[in-house]
Amino acid sequence: MAAGKPVVMVTLVSSDGQSFQLLEEAALLSAMVRDTIQIGQGRGPAGIPIRNITGQTLSMVVVYCNKHYTAAAAADGDDAADEEKKVANKKQLREWDEQFINLEQDKLYDILVAANNLGIDGLVDLCCWRFADMMKGKSASEIRVKLGIRDDFTSEQRAQIEKDSPWVWSRTT
């Protein structure tokens, strides 16, 4: 943060009435907050009400925004020519992301919904990546168990799927 710049805080209020204060610049990662501030709202003491998102989930989203804002601010301050450092920082942030999102399905789902409603692209991608990661390398039945997907095929249909598309199933994993 450049010295002399006034520090502006924004308050986000969850559906269950918990408030979270964060730097406006960090909150601007959300397209929804960006839009609200652009029309001149949300800077007051009442804050920005975030409907449908509980305090527990919102706290996670705030952690993500703060981390990504600090990382971006640090990258701006760095020597632009130091490519190696940039790559290392990027890798470090990715590692942080992966650890941050290493959650069970329920929480992950809540965060995905929250990130989507708030319009935080990076977090949406991260959640989707995590869901894909949970499916990777698993058989259909393993994925069903992991993600609680109900098998609603009839036994004929199931047999038909493999018969219909041998080009998919001939490649063994």
Binding site: M135, K136, R144, I161, V168
Partner: peptide
């Protein structure tokens, strides 16, 4: 975010 063959094979998960 899945490798292509695995993405296609999700067709066997459910309707």
């Amino acid at each position: 975010f899945l490798p292509l063959p695995e993405a296609v094979r999700t067709s066997a998960l459910s309707r």
